[in-house]
Write a protein that binds this DNA or RNA. Structure first.
Lengths: 368, 368
DNA sequence: CTGAAAGCGCTAACAG
DNA sequence: CTGTTAGCGCTTTCAG
């Protein structure tokens, strides 16, 4: 009882067996006589023995750790993926260590460094930009790596799991065009993020082809406040558009809060297609029509690929798994009167549609 | 180059020093001549050396890992705390490992087991119920432990960081009562979760004292779907209340989506005070008045306490840090006409206020 | 301030 | 099937 740590030796002594046997009982790597095994387990229980991972890892060279790198845990999309990955990993005896980069490349690099110092059995990474961090590129040959969401596809580098972003963008655009909308704003976060670029580009292409109009692309950055400010500034100098397609969860929030500030009614005045369907989007009277990404399915696909890599010895060529996103129709897209649609030149409605915004800051008052 | 792993020996050989010196250069535990140090660092760089944590931990007995246990990562409140903790830990050379329990006690127990197997330097836990898991209780003496949010305060067990939940509940109730609301529903998740119980109890007390009315307490469970169904069922058999106080992020969503299904206008027909202010609450025309928990400050306080425990040798008695929550006033609380307020007996308005719900499922249609 | 050597707790070989 | 033994890569004495 005075001893700091109970080791495998203590257990082996109490059970009257060798340390190797104790090891085998716990790791299950070699079969052990059932009678001995229970004796060992009892001894371990009475001593309160817990294996030391550090020692096991050092000796065996194996790890049951997989590293997960995300841009932002407070984004429900990523949180959902991480949660699902954690659950899957646990069922197979793996532990997950997570690092988040706050969407900053420099932080990402250092977090990744820390992650790799664990010598994980594999890495599942959602990089914060298209540029896959160098450290990962270097490791990708030596270690199973699966890239999820934020990547160019196909990648020669590693397995990937993404959605069909072009298709998703086109679906959103088609839905809007079919409802008679012409003057459409595309709210991107950063156009240098591959999935965002693809969604927005496909939407723009579809809109151009169907209506002959060029969509306006706005870059909102990666925070709600920042994005909301950009939209607000834009609204001050432009007519309220027919509709908006948001490229992500965060841009959806940014657009919505700017619109709220300007008291732009949805869907009466402007329609919106959101991205990354989440609980709050369906919780109000005007539910948001949204592109839903199959976050859990993405996590499952990524885990499956990683398992294959972790088991399989052979160096297979990288695989790209592409899942489909779907449109969830709620109430944020309205019909636009056909006589108006396309009839009025871009600027014409501006005078009548311009609204004074609310008092600049969103009128928040705190009461203790 | 053919070697699998570069070890400290390779570096020491190349730099022409002993392994101990290399170790000291990297760990910084003993001063090293600057000339030698740079030579070592260069050697390490050219070899691509990375220290092996497992070996370091095994030998030294120390770890730079802190374990964090949360009920649900997809809840932004917890995600925010985890993110902040991770950032703080990193600045001080610690790594964080996270486990989430999905709000299930059995999962929590097994996740905690896994967490403790890392022999972390400390644990920050947000248990999923009042009952602090046994394994944690056992460890609390041996290891720094900080309990956050979901705990009874004061606790003899360990340091705690919470908000003043009674105060938060009372603030919400007062706000509603001051606006003339009398018939108030309290949407709890589970009343056996201490902070929820305290918020709701304090609100109920305030309401009873100020209006003489007993608030209705509804237990909605821990998922949006489940909670929304409970509210819907309740609404079918009761008059629409004057107002609702939600006890958490999730219950807010549950109440809101049930209200949306019944087309109950906020704040015209019913007022609502939300909990756990998050981005989506301010993104619509009717922003949600909410109790804001200082999630980041809670993370900071918890980290600070943990640091003190991890450094300090002496066994200080447990400390309880209690932070204040504040009310953020937006637009989801309306004024109730004074002549009506309190004048009508509880059941009277039921006939006229009852509404037929929308088609049972929330009318969601998918388009490929 | 630096080097030599011992050993942390465990598992991999191999011998019985 | 079980025991013996030799290290995994690092940090820590303890001499120099």
């Amino acid at each position: 009882m005075i001893k700091g740590r109970i080791s495998i030796k203590d257990v082996s002594a109490l059970a009257g067996v060798s340390t190797a046997t104790v090891s085998n009982v716990f790791s299950g790597r070699k079969p052990v006589n059932e009678a001995l095994a229970t004796r060992v387990r009892e001894a371990a229980a009475t001593l309160g023995y817990q294996p030391d991972r550090a020692a096991a890892q050092l000796r065996s060279g194996r790890t049951n750790v997989v590293a997960v790198l995300v841009p932002d845990l407070t984004d429900t999309f990523f949180a959902t993926i991480v949660t699902r990955l954690e659950a899957l990993a646990n069922t197979q005896g793996y532990d997950v260590i997570v690092a988040s980069s706050g969407d900053q490349r420099s932080v990402e690099a250092s977090r990744l460094e820390a992650l790799l110092a664990w010598r994980p059995a594999g890495v599942i990474a959602m990089p914060c930009s298209n540029i896959v961090p160098e450290a990962l590129v270097a490791e990708a040959g030596r270690m199973p790596v699966v890239l999820v969401d934020r990547v160019m596809v196909p990648s020669a580098l590693a397995d990937t799991v993404t959605i069909d972003n072009r298709d998703a963008g086109a679906i959103a655009a088609r839905h809007l065009v079919e409802h008679g909308h012409r003057d459409i704003v595309l709210a991107a976060s950063h156009m240098d993020i591959a999935p965002v670029e693809q969604r927005m580009q496909a939407a723009a292409d579809h809109i151009l082809q169907e209506t002959g109009r060029r969509a306006t692309i706005l870059e909102l950055g990666s925070s709600v406040e920042e994005g909301s400010a950009v939209v607000a500034r834009w609204l001050e100098r432009h007519a309220v558009p027919d509709a908006v397609i948001a490229s992500t969860n965060v841009t959806t929030l940014a657009v919505l809060s700017a619109f709220a500030r300007f008291r732009i009614a949805i869907p009466e005045r402007t329609s919106i297609v959101a991205f990354d369907d989440s609980a709050w989007m369906s919780a109000r009277n005007t539910g948001l029509t949204a592109i839903r990404q199959p976050a859990e399915a993405m996590a499952e696909a990524a885990w499956e690929r990683l398992c294959i890599r972790m088991q399989g010895r052979g160096a297979m060529p990288p695989t790209s798994i592409v899942l489909q996103a779907g449109l969830v129709v709620r109430s944020s897209v309205g019909k636009r009167a056909p006589e108006r649609a396309g009839a009025s030149p871009p600027g014409e409605t501006s005078a009548e549609t311009r609204h004074p915004p609310d008092p600049p800051p969103p009128g928040v008052e705190r009461v203790h």
